[in-house]
């Protein structure tokens, strides 16, 4: 086979299939923003260092700036535009809105996507570095403020809205009842 530098792929985003030809260099983030008009996912650093581009891929939070679009074919992508249930905001979105969990708003879609996954990861019993004893015998950690802070640390907020972000994630986690989440992590 002769080398090709682009491919025609089908991306499934927020439940909708999109067929497009992509330069192999195109990241999932750029495909979303520049090709599909889904500009909710933000480009803060383009290096995986800020989390503003966080989306869910097969239910797991991912920095879309380091995910090649061509590599995302066949996976289910959920962006901030697909987090809500129609006109009903996801509890994380509602909590960010009510508690002012943001200022400029640029990191917000990534924070919200990340928080949706954090709640699922925690529900699946995943430990974090803030969890003292990681052995399974120790049981699942409580989602304390300290746990939320650690788990949300992949999303930088330069406005410094962390205090409200932690409160918003805690509120949304409290509101979570099994089976009502729009997006479930596969964790």
């Amino acid at each position: 086979m002769s080398p090709a530098t682009s491919s025609t792929i089908t991306l499934t985003v927020n439940g909708e299939k999109h067929t497009l030809a992509v330069d192999h260099r195109t990241t999932l983030l750029d495909a979303l923003r520049e090709r599909l008009g889904l500009t909710g996912s933000k480009k803060g650093c383009d290096q995986g260092q800020c989390g503003a581009c966080t989306v869910l891929v097969d239910g797991r939070r991912t920095v879309s700036c380091l995910q090649l679009a061509v590599g995302a074919e066949g996976r289910e992508v959920t962006t901030i535009e697909g987090v809500a249930d129609g006109d009903r905001l996801h509890p994380v979105q509602q909590a960010f809105l009510d508690l002012d969990g943001y200022q400029c708003g640029y990191c917000t879609p990534g924070q919200i996507c990340s928080a949706v996954a954090v709640i699922e990861e925690h529900a699946a019993g995943w430990p974090s570095v803030a969890t003292g004893d990681v052995r399974p015998e120790a049981g699942a950690p409580e989602l304390t403020a300290e746990e939320i802070r650690e788990r949300m640390s992949g999303n930088l907020c330069r406005c410094g809205a962390y205090v409200s972000i932690v409160q918003a994630v805690a509120r949304a986690a409290d509101a979570r009842t099994p089976g009502t989440e729009a997006e479930g992590a596969t964790a």
Partner: peptide, 21 residues
């Protein structure tokens, strides 16, 4: 009072400078 543009910011609808087509 909740921000007037708050809904746009939490749903990804708010368009920043590099996003206007």
């Amino acid at each position: 009072r909740v921000r007037l543009e708050g809904l746009d910011k939490v749903t990804g609808a708010a368009k920043y400078a590099g996003e206007v087509d």
